[in-house]
Design a protein around this nucleic acid. Structure first.
Lengths: 208, 208
DNA sequence: TCGCTTGTAGGGTAATAACCCTACAGACAG
DNA sequence: CTGTCTGTAGGGTTATTACCCTACAAGCGA
């Protein structure tokens, strides 16, 4: 019997998912959470076999949870459930030690399969995502943004000007400009508008 | 017995919701759809009492469906289910004739209440949203963007420069600038970055 | 009819962004 | 220990944006 923790900030979704999993004999739900921090605390307390967590949650993202789980060497396997079929996010998840990656527009069968897969020790990625991820890697998209670049990107996407970002980070506006240029070069984007769109769509603002 | 149509592009969510509604004796699900267009066709065919639809769906948004339902004078009441507690979207929904507005982070009880409410002829809006909507209206946020302004906003958020937008719409870059200024004045935003963020977050790109 | 909004377009100026460089210290990987 | 990446910062130029105006015809609602 697989012990499960579920975390999602959308109550209706959580309720529905609970029903689906209740009807699945392989697993037993041992805890539920409505935000990331709560989920993380419950994982430490209950040490479930698998934690099924949303990526986009208040306080702490599913990816951060996976990072913590790995950092503390817990045996819990993390399966993230997300709406966005976003290669950049999937890459991020992979790097954080996420064991399973399932889309909300996959079916429940896909999810239960993922859960079984990850308890057996392997990784599972929704076919739709892995296909895109592959294409993404090939298309020179396998870029890694440095922590500082992420930080700057987040601020750009928040609507701050270079000058404002410079003040916020206590660096020169020229340095902000350099970071912006490098971001644009790496991502092959050519205007703030595109950067902001990229950031919002890949969840830079709300997730991390 | 209330007849229902469900539409959501997230299969897991739809499956979970189905379980929840199956266990609710008041209603019977007569049709389900995975995208907006399919939902709209099934509404015309089955004429359900209530259509519970996601806002953000491929091909056709829940708001567009509500508009069509009203345009054809169908008796079906539309309840939109959305993740985003976004006053601008709620206003848009209200104007399109949506009868109920429920957030995915409300509970199922909230949804069933909304369904009962709308069949009885009244409107239902999730308390969290109506609170924000009220604040939004007061805070001079009750702005209406003209069709042309929406169009320009969409292009700005797509990453096009004024010059490019001018070419696309076959108008002068100066006119684009005027639209941009008016958008910024109306929305109290002061940079493309903020406009793009606003557009993406209120779903201008993917929803409408 | 009067006022308001819309869509169009222009003249200005100042600030910012976008793109070109260079430079250098520290980290880290091969 | 040599090369690449990162974070820092500067000098340039040009393009674009942001913010001032004005203007006018069309439409719409009071």
């Amino acid at each position: 019997m697989i012990s499960l923790l579920l975390a999602d900030d959308h109550a209706i979704f959580l309720q529905g998912l609970t029903r689906l999993l209740d009807a699945w004999p392989e697993a037993r739900i041992v805890a539920m959470a409505a935000d990331g921090q709560e989920a993380w605390e419950l994982i430490q307390r209950h040490k479930p076999d698998v934690a099924v967590v949303d990526i986009r949650m208040p306080k702490m993202s599913g990816i951060e949870i996976a990072g913590q789980v790995r950092a503390l060497g817990l045996s819990t396997r993390v399966v993230v459930l997300t709406m966005h079929d976003e290669p950049a996010l999937a890459l991020e998840a992979e790097r954080s030690g996420v064991a399973g990656y399932v889309l909300k527009d996959d079916t429940f069968e896909e999810l239960s399969q993922a859960i079984e897969k990850v308890v057996s020790g392997s990784r599972y990625m929704s076919p739709a995502v892995s296909k895109n991820l592959h294409a993404f890697r090939l298309s020179s998209g396998g870029v890694t943004l440095s922590p500082r670049e992420r930080e700057v990107l987040k601020l750009i996407a928040s609507g701050l000007s270079s000058k404002a970002i410079a003040r916020a980070l206590d660096i020169s506006p020229k340095t902000v400009g350099t970071h912006r240029s490098r971001l644009m070069a790496k991502l092959d984007l050519h205007s703030v508008a595109e950067l902001v769109r990229y950031a919002v769509e890949t969840g830079f603002l709300s997730d991390k």
